[in-house]
Amino acid sequence: MPTESILHAIPLERPGTNRELMKLTRRQLLSRTVAVTGSLVLGSSFIAASNAAWAVEVKALKPESMATLIQMARDIYPHDNFSDALYAAAVKGHDDKAAEDAEFKTLIEDGIAALDKAAQDAGHANYLATGWESDRTAILRSLESSDLFQTVRGGLVVGLYNQPEVWAKLGYEGSSFDKGGYLYRGFDDISWL
């Protein structure tokens, strides 16, 4: 799959933002919890932050697979000041697509099985349980040409970096016309030169 094939089909609607993720109280979360791994809580049809800050409903993929996609997304474009919610929003579309497209669901689930197999071959329980980022990225490098990797990375270019919450984290101010542009708001305010 061409790496940036997103750019010719261009569905380019903004991906689900974390505002659209489920809101759960900690009590609700704990009552629905069936498994815990890493910083994520897995339910039968959802995954959530262990502090209940956010949760995402999983429609077609296994909750473990969605948790793996979120970890993969962070390992591909690691930003330590981004919450998992931003990565969850960026990969949520794969679950939506898997719900409508069985072939795509297989691509994702088989890809994740291969990822876990590669982790096991490297002496880890699975991808999620691989402790160091460098060990996980080594696994990803070995599968860089796989459909799973290409799909996830290609989707992240827009899925992650087109979120206004991400722009704010990166220090970008977004739309300016509605604020009168930058003529009186610091277009030439550089002071360190």
Binding site: T3, E4, L7, V157, V158, L160, Y161, N162, V166, W167, L170, Y172, G174
Partner: peptide, 11 residues
């Protein structure tokens, strides 16, 4: 902007 930078800095 960051949306295009992500796509074009080093595809």
């Amino acid at each position: 902007g960051p949306a295009f930078m992500a796509a074009f800095l080093n595809p």
